[in-house]
Design a protein around this nucleic acid. Structure first.
Lengths: 137, 137
DNA sequence: GCTATATACTTGTACCATCAAATATATAGC
DNA sequence: GCTATATATTTGATGGTACAAGTATATAGC
């Protein structure tokens, strides 16, 4: 059973390394990983827009964290607000064309970084790892 | 190859979940995961003391981060400073008996949390996961 | 339709970690 | 032994994130 402890520590170590590599690459595009992660969720969601509170849940941040993360992105025209006529409390977040292009460029960097990070992993191990991670989350 | 991207996102998601669970459990002991992680390295290292800069590297933080993390722990007598007579620049960090006891209690919580988090994982998958994580880090 | 409760979001405050600069000490080359 | 450079640590300033409280709107029960 005590493998689990080792998994925890190793997972955190790997994650730290991973985030450092990603943030370093993404700084070339002038964004942080959190911003990229938001864009990723916006780009891959069904109708291309998400409520702030759902975004918070998806990226694992608080609602206030999302407010403060999105505000500057809105000023830079990376994302835009869309109001909900049915419920004046909610505001959807949506990628602009500018944001979409930024996302695609950034994704290329992230993709390259991911491939470098895992280049020594055998294909069957990649598949297994992904399967295990999915079963945990 | 694009499995690697999915691995990155899943890994970050799992890690976020994991850290939230751990921090929540550790708050019972009045400590954060960073503090626990420091104690873990101190408790499991060869001669029970580590230079601040090595500690920083081990826990994946900056040297200044370690200074600010350790100072309050020192005030609470969880860790203590040990000077190096050979080199006046370095100061070692060492668990006190109080710190050692706190660590052991906290480790019990962490252990329980880890077991809960991974309870649905088959034993062979735990072993495989650990092996893969080791090969990455 | 009023009141109580719930939900979505923002704002004030505080913490934690970073980077860059400052300080102290050590080492190397002359 | 002096000077230049490298290393270990701390300090000042800053950014990102959280929690709690505040605001606005919606929904339910009467």
């Amino acid at each position: 059973m005590n493998e689990n402890i080792d998994i925890v520590f190793k997972m955190i170590a790997v994650n730290t390394k991973l985030l450092k590599a990603l943030d370093s690459q993404l700084s070339i595009h002038g964004i942080t990983f959190s911003e990229f992660f938001v864009m990723y969720h916006l780009a891959t969601t069904e109708n291309k827009m998400i409520r702030r509170i759902d975004l918070a849940q998806k990226v694992g941040m608080s609602a206030s964290g999302i407010t403060r993360l999105i505000n500057p992105m809105e000023k830079l025209k990376i994302v835009e607000k869309e109001l909900n006529p049915r419920d004046a409390r909610v505001s959807f977040v949506k990628l602009t064309p500018v944001g979409m292009e930024l996302y695609e460029n950034a994704m290329q960097s992230v993709s390259d970084t991911a491939n470098t990070l895992f280049e020594d992993l055998k294909v069957e191990d990649s598949i297994k790892l992904l399967e295990i991670l999915r079963s945990i989350s």
